[in-house]
Amino acid sequence: MTELVRPELVCPAGTPAALKSAVEAGADCVYVGFRDETNARNFPGLNFSRKELEEGIALAHDHGAKVLVAINTFPRAGRPDLWHQAVADSARLKADAVILADIGLLAHAAHHHPDLRLHLSVQAAASNPDSIRFYAERFGVKRVVLPRVLTVQEIATVNAAIAPVETEVFVFGGLCVMAEGRCALSSYATGQSPNMNGVCSPASHVRYEERAGGITSQLAGFTINKFGEGEPAGYPTLCKGRFIANGKTSYLFEEPTSLNTLAMLPELIKAGITAFKIEGRQRGRAYVAAVVQAFRQGVDAVMAGRPMPDIDLDRITEGGRQTTGAYERTWR
């Protein structure tokens, strides 16, 4: 039996407080973004100023944890300065890596900051070895965050094909149903997209209406869902809404559900993945602490050959539902 490689736990932080929570809960890496449209969680009141990043990096490094800066939207033509500055500041503040998605920005970073470690964001949706090699060979990308479209078996195949490039996969949190970075549903409805604005189904366009018998959630005037009394509600993310198609009302794309791979950790670790990523920079520090602790325990148990602890993350999952998503072929 080959020896298992201990995966890094890469944890989200939308604020300095969440970064502290993540580090204290056992994160190996924390990923963050600047407070602007250079990252794909450009949400109201969230993210880091330069000063906060500097302090966050110091705190994380004191605890032996790394800080990765996501600059994973696609720079606007004619105005790339904001993105270039974000890369330069990450390098200056000694971030351990930047997570990029745009080819032009990767080229810029590789040229101007040759010592800065580059990770490929999930938003680049590099779903096969040829794509990954392209980013590794042209821009020196060291790690790729795989899109949430592959099965565990496909991931293992990819891993073998692209070594020594590292892979990182999502193990928990909000699940993109579409190939990441290749979805314009949000801008179609709201004018704001993950790729251009760093938001999906933005809060500025969300309205909840409490009516007799339940809640209606709307996005830019489109009804995305209706929830009866007591039914678990969900944020009106477009792809998690209820729609009518073929004469039938259903969660056509995906149920309001969260990815949870705790039970699959042994399998994922065997697949030779370098890092496990937890989604949720927009969630509070209570979420960060709970999920990071759970996965810390899980990973440590597998590595020590102990049985998986029974951890219930029901309460913090969307709609109270969980899925193993694309990691199992039946999801497709």
């Binding site: 678990p232 969900g234 944020y235 509070g284 520090r285 709609g319």
Partner: peptide, 13 residues
């Protein structure tokens, strides 16, 4: 107080 997750609260209504 940041002791609970706002999203979770909303999801659970």
């Amino acid at each position: 107080e940041g002791k609970v997750d706002g999203d979770a609260l909303f999801f659970s209504r």
